[in-house]
Amino acid sequence: MTSIVALVTAIALLFGGSSPAAAQNAPDEGDSKSLRDVLEAASKGHIEAKAKLDNSKKRQGELTAQFDSVQARLTSLTAEVGVMAAESYRLGRLTSVTLLLNSASPENMLERAAGLEVMAQREGRNLQALAEAHEQAARAKAAIDNEVREQEKQVTIMARKKQDAQRALAAVSAGPSGGVVSANSAAANPAPRNSDGSWPSESCNVDDPTTSGCITPRTLHAMNQAKAAGFTKFVSCFRNGGSGEHPKGRACDFSAEAGGFKDRAATGDDRTYGNNLAGYYVNNADRLGVLYVIWFRQIWMPGVGWSSYNGGGSAAGDHTNHVHLSML
């Protein structure tokens, strides 16, 4: 029985299958908990600020359209009130005395009185509408100003989070790098967001198909989207203990080789596979909720871009044998 289990496991590893037993082969990436925590906080802060910035810009656009509409109505009402004022000035304001003196007959007096009432009502409605339009315009303008201030606030937060990330990366990075570019990446189906564009909080409550642990729904979605795009080599996500997002069910390691994690740097088609997969997740970061990507001595973070990465010299630590994906 033991030999059968061993044979099944070997076959699964040989053909790139992801099974609960595969969790034992997840690489030790060697990062410190403090580094991972800072990277997580910096990336998450940037992503949340960007979502608020995008939502504010959308709201500003809606308010601007509303303001323009009110301004057009103000122009029209101002013109109408101006015409009525000019007419009143030209003919003179009718009073009850002038109405009686200028009436040739009782019938004529009643007719003029009715006309006077209609004019007064019309003038009153226009003046009231004009006043309301002025108030609406003022409210819309104040709301637009508030959105501009909100955008300035979020831009400041994004800049601060970028500095946090750069300070944290200083321990493992020599600075910006050329990165990985994959111009032909397929567009992933977006992961669900809240109505305001922010990312919903998720817990590790979905069975991880690559281990016996759990992952978040967003992590599962990101993995399945990559598989649908043709990235079907060996994957391992949940990992007990250690630092970073693996124990939280928010990270996956994608081997560059089909048979599992090898203690060697990827070359040839395997390296191309890793390049394309890393590029896929970077290009779809905003759709999927990607926190950061590490591959072949380089790390990508939103707001920072690609930076060099020194993981200690091993294939696992330098991530030259696998692509690391961390999720919100």
Rank of each mutant, 00 (worst) to 15 (best):
I294G: 08
T64W: 00
N240D: 12
Q166K: 12
V81M: 04
G197Q: 03
V293R: 04
G249F: 05
K262R: 14
V5K: 12
S198P: 08
G260S: 08
S3G: 04
M223D: 06
L291H: 07
F261D: 03
L63T: 05
A165M: 07
G179N: 02
A186C: 05
S307Q: 15
S201C: 00
S43Q: 03
P176L: 10
C237F: 09
F238M: 07
L169A: 01
A228P: 03
T272N: 13
R167E: 14
D286L: 07
G30A: 13
T219R: 04
I144K: 00
N310M: 05
T2V: 09
I144V: 13
R112T: 11
Q136M: 13
K262A: 13
Q136G: 12
A138S: 15
N205K: 02
G274L: 01
H46C: 02
Q121E: 12
F231H: 01
L35H: 04
V282H: 06
N205A: 09
R122E: 09
I47K: 00
A142V: 04
E132T: 13
L77Y: 01
Q298L: 06
E202F: 00
T211A: 09
D318V: 00
P217C: 05
A72C: 09
A191W: 07
C214R: 11
Q225G: 04
R160S: 14
G16C: 07
L130S: 11
T210K: 03
D318H: 03
K248N: 10
Y89L: 15
K248L: 08
G260K: 06
V290R: 02
C252D: 07
V181C: 05
Q24N: 13
Q60I: 11
I144Y: 02
A138Q: 11
N55D: 08
G268W: 08
A256Q: 11
D269Q: 14
G249T: 03
V97N: 13
